[in-house]
């Protein structure tokens, strides 16, 4: 039986010191932080993750949502997704984040899942989750049967010849659009990572999903001060009405003057190998009339580099419709 040690560190420093002994902070790491466990424990049951040691960070004082000095918001690493989604300030000033979280999983899962855990959510690629299958992300160099197999749910943006796994998070899509910053304490001190630099494209190293190094503990996420008068929408499209990962989703934060878009932040989910911020769409929007033609152009721009696989070509059009409709909804809100 695969056994593991389970410990509760006294403080963050102890947690980091223990975790820093691992060779990697990525898949296969021997030491893992555990919070809600909704991804990690699931993958341990499947033998996809087999850590020798779990560091329970639930009792570290990382569970607060607080205002920051510059008018933004600080969200602790172990804040539960349900608490974050239902927080009054989040609902008022960062509603796209609330909408995104509530579009994902189920109430029971959201009650357990945490902010930091959601940032590190693993792909739902069926080949990744089955140790009988080859998978370059799980076993580098073993191959990618998804490219020649069942890939309907997989990514069309940011893929490589080694990996087309989709990032499944809803929360991350909203955080990308909100320009969140991820704060990490590590063996070499603290640092802040811009959201767009946190997740890595698979390239030839799909086993590396984030920039985290051994010992790096996500302590909190900050959101910048809300954009005054911004209109925020998260739209998630999927086969059934609830409890399914996105085929395509869009998070949009728009500011407008009259009928003109003055500011736009756009991110897509369900289609990218990472939460997909689209500067191309934003460029196509800013300064333009908030109308159907502009929204469609932005959507075309966002998906310009999309690469279909054998079963998921429809996602390109679906993502375009998703983004255009989210923009329309935000503009007319």
């Amino acid at each position: 039986m695969h056994t593991f040690e389970f410990g509760r560190p006294a403080d963050a420093a102890a947690a980091i010191a223990t975790a820093a002994r691992a060779k990697t902070a990525q898949q296969g790491a021997d030491v893992r932080f555990v919070a809600g466990g909704t991804t990690l424990v699931d993958l341990m049951k499947l033998n996809v993750e087999t850590p020798g040691r779990l560091i329970d960070i639930n009792r570290l004082p990382l569970d607060k949502i607080e205002a920051t000095a510059d008018g933004g918001l600080k969200i602790g690493a172990t804040v539960r997704n349900s608490d974050l989604a239902n927080n009054a300030v989040v609902q008022r000033d960062y509603s796209v984040l609330s909408q995104a979280i509530l579009a994902g999983a189920s109430a029971q899962l959201r009650n357990m899942a945490t902010t930091a855990g959601n940032l590190l959510q693993r792909t739902r690629c069926m080949y990744f989750r089955d140790t009988a299958m080859a998978c370059n992300k799980r076993e580098p160099g073993s191959g990618c049967p998804a490219i020649t197999g069942a890939n309907r749910m997989l990514a069309v943006l940011g893929t490589s010849e080694q990996c087309i796994a989709t990032n499944p998070s809803d929360m991350c899509v909203a955080m990308a659009a909100l320009e969140a910053t991820i704060h990490v304490q590590g063996a070499k001190g603290s640092r802040a990572i811009a959201f767009g630099e946190f997740h890595l494209l698979p390239g030839s190293t799909p086993e590396r999903e984030t920039v985290l190094e051994p010992g790096d503990l996500i302590t909190h996420v900050t959101l910048p001060a809300p954009l005054a008068g911004s209109k925020q929408v998260y739209l998630k499209l999927r086969d059934r009405a609830s409890y399914e990962f996105a085929l395509a989703s869009a998070a949009v934060v728009l500011t407008m003057k009259g009928e003109t878009v003055t500011g736009a932040r756009v991110a897509l989910g369900g289609v990218g190998t990472k939460p997909w911020r689209s500067h191309e769409a934003e460029t196509a929007l800013v300064g333009q009339a908030a109308d159907a033609a502009t929204f469609r152009k932005a959507a075309e721009a966002a998906l310009r580099d999309a690469k279909p696989q054998s079963e998921n070509g429809f996602k390109i059009e679906l993502a375009k419709r998703c983004l255009a409709y989210a923009l329309k909804t935000a503009a007319t809100a």
Binding site: R124, A132, A150, A241, Y243
Partner: peptide
Amino acid sequence: APINSNLADYVMAVNAD
């Protein structure tokens, strides 16, 4: 292999449907 062999990937109607 029946590849979608779990209740997340074998999609069936849920209450919201």
